[in-house]
Amino acid sequence: MSVAALDPAREGRGDFDWSARFSRFAVYAVLVFAALVFLVPLMSMVFTSLKDMDEIRGGNLLAPPAEVTFSAWVKAWSEACISVQCDGLAPYFINSLLIVVPAVIISVGLGALNGYVLTMWRFPGADWVFAGLLFGCFIPFQIVLIPMARMLGIMGLAGSIPGVVFVHIVYGIGFTTLFFRNYYASVPKELVKAASVDGAGFWGTWWHILMPISWPIVTVAVIWQFTGVWNDFLFGVSFSSGGSQPVTVALNNLVNTSTGVKEYNVDMAGAMISAFPTLFVYVVAGRFFLRGLMSGAVKG
């Protein structure tokens, strides 16, 4: 909707509508300003990461690099010293991948299954189970840190990647269940009845009938979980140790390393490397936001 259309009474007047013009201009001005507020720091980051230290020390923070160099990126990726090791962010980046992939797949899968059971195969007390899961969504992370650390210790997962994965799955199930339950609640029950008459069982109905129409909500759940898990710092710093730390924790250590000079270009490159996967997921997953997947199931 265009801004001018917000006030239909103004339209249709013969003379030139200065007031509509002005309000449109004002809105764009605000939007451009807001965009700049976000883009200028990003631009500064990109520029800084492409400069060498001499140029940074001598030049303007907002000026483009006089000479483009990728050495800071290379250093951040594979050479920078984090704590005592000097292998860059790469090993921690891989840790993060090892955490995020199973955590997202398992929590989204379980959420879909929960949503399916809670809507289509309702059992006595289903509402209480759902209420319990929902409640789990609202427990602040900080409260569970110590009990969770104890749990992981008992399970023998303390300080390991599987331990961090486990925590993320447990925390994610509440949200993913909520997403899928609400989505499946809008799916006609007759679809499931029809499948059951056609001979599809519990799993067959889920796999053949519901999953193919679940892509919009799978996308939402994956983006939500991926961003949450990848950007997590608290669980990572609490439940992992040394070699199993995720990239967010490593980035923090990289930036806070106090020895030697502060290499702003390496810090900036490292920050962007750490942020890149979430950006990637948004762009790729956004394509799966297909509309109207459910249309045609029931009458026009």
């Binding site: 499948a195 059951s196 008459v197 053949h208 459910m294 009458k299």
Partner: peptide, 21 residues
């Protein structure tokens, strides 16, 4: 018996066609 074992077929008011197929 389960619906599939009853040797029946059903046509629903809303048709309930599988949208993805």
């Amino acid at each position: 018996l389960q619906p599939k074992e009853r040797d029946i077929a059903m046509v629903f008011q809303s048709y309930a066609l599988y949208p993805s197929m």
